[in-house]
């Protein structure tokens, strides 16, 4: 059964359809990529799935349950986690605290325990801290745990955001351009990380501009253009699709400028 099921999703901004009638599904362990030229509506789609925008029409199902328009924190409780294209880091907090924030659902408890620093709170916090340290090690940021997150490099922040998203122990992970701004080595690492996560049974929904990466790791690709799904299928099928080629040729120059 599909973990995430999107059907007929659409939203309009000021009368313009930013995303229109998009449907697809993601199964556990699958890597589904959403590609398309800039402005095709990929991030808007992510924002609707993760509850930041309320969809104008259509439905989002998580594990068979209708979760359309639910608040982001509710979706997080149901196992959905995400990263952001333009980084949403808690700049003033330490690197460790950033990941610990991702443990919120696991370490939260009654407010009294927090105010009085009761042993039960400290126990929960210690478990979260150990987990956060392990995650930081996994994305090679363990040396920086005490630093203010705002002082990290762009590439490190990208990895920090992934670590924070993983802290939720998600069933489905939405990654919005995880490799943007990363060098070849870093991209390679992210490639491995994503494959590994999918291998452990997490469903991955990916937006990425690095076509080599997308073609290599995706099990299924959705192509958006002007807010509509123009094609979908496995990497080989999609890369041969004439409509896809046309959409990309039309926007070819932009893409090159970005790489």
């Amino acid at each position: 059964m599909s973990l995430l099921e999107v059907s007929g999703l659409g939203i309009a901004f000021g009368g313009l359809m930013a995303v229109n009638d998009v449907s697809f599904a993601v199964k556990p362990g699958e890597i589904v990529s959403v590609i398309g030229p800039n402005g095709a509506g990929k991030t808007t789609l992510f924002n609707m799935i993760s509850g930041i925008y309320r969809p104008g029409r259509g439905a989002v199902r998580l594990n068979g349950e209708d979760v359309t328009g639910e608040a982001p924190h509710r979706l997080a409780e149901k196992g959905l986690s995400r990263t952001f294209q333009n980084l949403q880091i808690f700049q003033e907090m330490t690197v460790l605290d950033n990941v610990l924030a991702g443990y919120h659902l696991q370490e939260r408890g009654p407010i009294w325990a927090d105010l009085l620093s009761l042993p039960s709170m400290r126990r929960r916090a210690t478990i979260a801290r150990d987990g956060a340290r392990a995650l930081l090690e996994r994305v090679r940021l363990d040396k920086t745990e005490g630093q203010q997150a705002g002082s990290l490099s762009y590439g490190s922040l990208k990895r920090l955001e992934i670590a924070r998203a993983l802290a939720l122990n998600p069933k489905i992970l939405l990654l919005d351009e995880p490799a943007a701004g990363c060098n070849a080595v870093e991209t390679e690492e992210i490639d491995h990380l994503i494959t590994e996560l999918a291998g452990s049974g997490i469903a991955i929904l990916l937006v990425e501009h690095d076509m080599k990466l997308v073609m290599r790791i995706s099990s299924h690709i959705i192509v958006l253009d002007h807010g509509e799904k123009i094609a979908e299928g496995d990497p080989a099928t999609v890369s041969r699709d004439p409509q896809v080629i046309a959409a990309y040729l039309g926007a070819g120059q932009e893409e090159e400028a970005e790489c």
Partner: peptide, 16 residues
């Protein structure tokens, strides 16, 4: 402190 930093990120990690 997280919601102070970014309300959107805070809500996506499950903070009400």
């Amino acid at each position: 402190r997280a919601l102070h930093g970014s309300e959107i990120a805070a809500s996506t990690v499950g903070i009400d």
